[in-house]
Simulated assay, not measured.
Amino acid sequence: MGNKNSSTNFKTKHNTHLNKPETIDSIEGEKPKYYLPNDSNDIDGLHLIHFLKKHLYHNNFSVPIEENLIQGGYKVLDDSYFFGLDIMPVFPIEIKPKNLEFIESDIFKGLPFPDNVFDFVHQSSMLFAVRTDQWDYVISELIRVTKPGGFIELVEFTGSQNNGPALTNLYDIYQDSCSQRGVDLLLTCNLNNIIQANGNITKVQNDTRSFLIGPNGGKLGMVMQDIFLMYNTSVTSIEHLSSKQGISKVVVKNMLNDIVKELEETKPEINISRFWTRKKP
Rank of each mutant, 00 (worst) to 15 (best):
N3E: 10
N3K: 12
N9Y: 07
F10A: 12
T16C: 06
H17V: 07
H17P: 00
N19H: 11
E22A: 09
D25P: 01
S26L: 04
N41D: 05
L48C: 07
L48R: 01
I49H: 04
L56T: 08
Y57N: 09
N59P: 00
S62E: 14
P64T: 05
P64K: 09
Y74G: 01
K75R: 13
K75F: 12
S80D: 09
F82M: 03
F83Y: 15
L85W: 01
M88C: 13
F91I: 01
P97M: 10
K109R: 13
L111N: 14
L111H: 06
D115F: 11
D115N: 15
A129C: 12
A129L: 06
V130S: 00
V130F: 02
R131H: 08
D133G: 03
W135Q: 03
Y137M: 15
V138M: 14
L142S: 11
I143L: 13
I143T: 10
R144L: 11
V145Y: 04
V145T: 10
G150S: 12
F151D: 03
I152C: 14
I152T: 06
E156L: 07
G159M: 07
S160D: 10
N162I: 02
L167E: 03
T168V: 08
N169W: 14
L170H: 11
Y171N: 02
I173C: 13
S177L: 12
S179I: 05
Q180T: 05
Q180L: 14
L185M: 14
L186N: 12
N190R: 15
L191C: 11
A197R: 13
N200M: 08
T202A: 08
V204M: 05
Q205E: 10
T208Y: 01
F211A: 06
I213W: 00
P215D: 09
P215K: 10
N216W: 04
G217D: 10
L220H: 00
M222F: 08
F228A: 01
L229S: 10
M230Q: 14
Y231A: 09
T233Y: 02
T236L: 12
T236A: 15
S237C: 14
S237N: 11
S237F: 04
H240M: 09
S243L: 09
Q245T: 11
G246D: 02
I247N: 03
V250W: 03
V251K: 10
M255R: 09
I259W: 12
L263A: 06
T266Y: 13
E269M: 10
I272A: 07
T277E: 08
